[in-house]
């Protein structure tokens, strides 16, 4: 549905996108993840035919963004970063205006606006000026606007940025509901976002794809081993010594916490050492109040991979 090949974009002498490749199959929800300034918005702006690439090619629904940009614009519903809308217009007026620009006649506009009012929950705000809406409501108007012409592809640039947690959940639900019938490409720098909404994640940094795959798959690639934190009542040295004897334990860090010992135990080769640790605790007849199993999050992977790429580039 979306094909990006060898995409390069320079802003003057600054390289924003560096030979980027990206493929999105029809019906997929794909998240572009990257730190600020990684080239997410630039890639999206090229895809939506807002600006041309310096080199390389991008196509949406089989239409090239340079030679067939009108067809690309008709295939894409685009929600730009920070959802720009006209503050002086009422929600209904804004939707009618963009419906008109997309060539919908009055009947078609009324029908679509009716459908989207329901889908995006706009009943209560249709007649209100956009300047008076909350950010969450603006986001819904933006989403409705992007879908007016019923495009097969939705491109959302940071759709949840700046929203409060309730609003984020609402917008995310809305996106997931839409995802049933559309191909969606969304960008974000918030990690839980992609874990929850996307089937595939593309991590980019400095204009390059540094990793991609399913969120679960990416997590497993994290090289940092899993850790278990236990809280037992025993002297620090004893706990340290006891745990270090265990074969599959790689490293133990222990601290005194008002008579209790907090030990962070790192396992060798990602082995699950919870049971072994529990046995050791029972064997030593220590009192014991907590055990936490920490797996690597996508967040850690993200930091690992983007900082590794930074070091490489430096």
């Amino acid at each position: 549905m979306i094909r990006v090949q060898n995409l390069v974009k320079y802003y003057g002498p600054t390289l924003a996108v560096d030979h980027l490749d990206l493929d999105v199959e029809a019906g997929q929800v794909v998240g572009i993840l990257g730190p600020n300034g990684a080239g997410k918005s630039t890639t999206i702006r090229i895809l939506t035919a807002f600006m041309p690439p310096t080199a390389g090619s991008a196509s949406v629904n089989g239409h090239d963004v340079l030679t067939d940009s009108d067809a690309v614009r008709r295939s894409i519903g685009y929600l730009p970063e920070s959802t720009p809308l006209y503050p002086e217009m009422r929600v209904r007026e804004q939707l009618h205006y963009f419906g008109r620009l997309h060539g919908l006649d009055r009947t078609a506009r009324n029908r679509r606006i009716g459908e989207l009012t329901e889908a995006c929950g706009l009943e209560a705000i249709l007649a209100r000026p956009i300047g008076h809406l909350s950010k969450g409501n603006k986001q819904r108007v933006g989403l409705a606007q992007a879908m007016l012409h019923d495009p097969p592809v939705l491109v959302l640039d940071e759709p949840t940025a700046g929203l409060d947690p309730t609003q984020i959940t609402e917008v995310r639900k809305l996106i997931l509901r839409l995802a049933e019938s559309k191909t969606i490409l969304l960008s974000t720098h918030i990690l839980p976002e992609v874990e929850k909404t996307c089937q595939r994640v593309v991590i980019i940094n400095r204009g390059r794809v540094v990793a991609q795959g399913e969120p679960e798959e990416l997590k497993q690639r994290v090289r940092s081993a899993s850790r278990v934190v236990v809280d037992v009542k025993a002297p620090v040295e004893q706990v340290k010594a006891a745990f270090e004897k265990i074969q599959s334990v790689q490293d133990v860090e222990a601290y005194n916490d008002q008579g209790w010992t907090l030990a962070a135990v790192t396992a060798r080769d990602n082995v699950d050492i919870r049971e072994i640790l529990a046995d050791a605790i029972v064997e030593n007849r220590w009192s014991f109040r907590e055990m936490t199993y920490e797996t690597a999050s996508l967040e850690e992977y993200f930091i690992q991979i983007t900082s590794a790429a930074n070091i490489e580039a430096a």
């Binding site: 807002f50 614009r73 809308l85 006209y86 620009l101």
Partner: peptide
């Protein structure tokens, strides 16, 4: 300034 140019210029006009 407001960024609405992006919605405008990505419409088929």
């Amino acid at each position: 300034r407001s960024g609405t140019i992006e919605s405008l210029m990505t419409s088929p006009i």
